[in-house]
């Protein structure tokens, strides 16, 4: 499990001052975090600042309880983004796509990735968040509960609801 390895890196940093372990964690998570922030509405420039600020805060506190470090990092970043969005400096539309049109072969079926992307964009902000964290970044519902601050059961129901909505929006991919 990738998350177990990431947790081990942070434990190693916290217990043995293993700076290279922390750098490995950073290199793995910074790119995912940056893309997640862009998907959640930050501009690219804001996403760099938020990644920097989130990691600074993460460094200061993670060793107090180095369990589920990725979820903790994403929670910090999400709270920073919410503060930014409340200040009105971030765009409200959560996902912007570049002009790339492409098709991918999944199990022998060509699907229009852009259609999926647009369909995700039609979900509510909470649903988008769950879909991105769970199905794009591969986090567990337990980690989602840590990041979003809601019970796991509630998030499971919201996740199922989001997928049902995607199914309605993408009937051709049944």
């Amino acid at each position: 499990m990738v998350q177990d390895k990431l947790q081990e890196l942070i434990r190693s940093y916290c217990s043995d001052d293993d700076a290279p372990a922390f750098r490995r964690f950073y290199r793995h998570e910074s790119q995912r975090l940056w893309r997640y922030l862009v998907a959640r509405g930050a501009t690219e420039a804001q996403a760099y600042d938020l990644v920097s600020e989130a990691f600074i805060r993460f460094l200061k506190t993670v060793c107090k309880n180095p369990i589920a470090p990725s979820a903790y990092l994403f929670r910090i970043a999400q709270n920073l983004l919410i503060d930014l969005q409340r200040s009105g400096l971030s765009r409200e539309v959560s996902i912007e796509i570049n002009e790339l049109e492409s098709k991918q072969d999944v199990g022998g079926t060509f699907i229009e990735t852009r259609d999926v992307f647009v369909a995700i964009n039609k979900l509510t902000r909470d649903e988008q968040n769950i879909v991105l964290l769970r199905y794009w970044l591969g986090m567990t519902y337990k980690e989602l509960a840590e990041i979003i601050g809601r019970p796991e059961g509630t998030l499971r129901r919201q996740g199922a609801s989001a997928l049902r909505r995607l199914k309605e929006l993408l009937p051709e991919y049944e």
């Binding site: 893309r35 998907a39 760099y48 796509i97 999944v106 699907i111 990735t113 992307f117």
Partner: peptide, 13 residues
């Protein structure tokens, strides 16, 4: 599909 779509269309840092 979600994974492919996001990987494909979101910008890369």
């Amino acid at each position: 599909r979600i994974r492919l779509s996001m990987d494909q269309l979101l910008p890369v840092p």
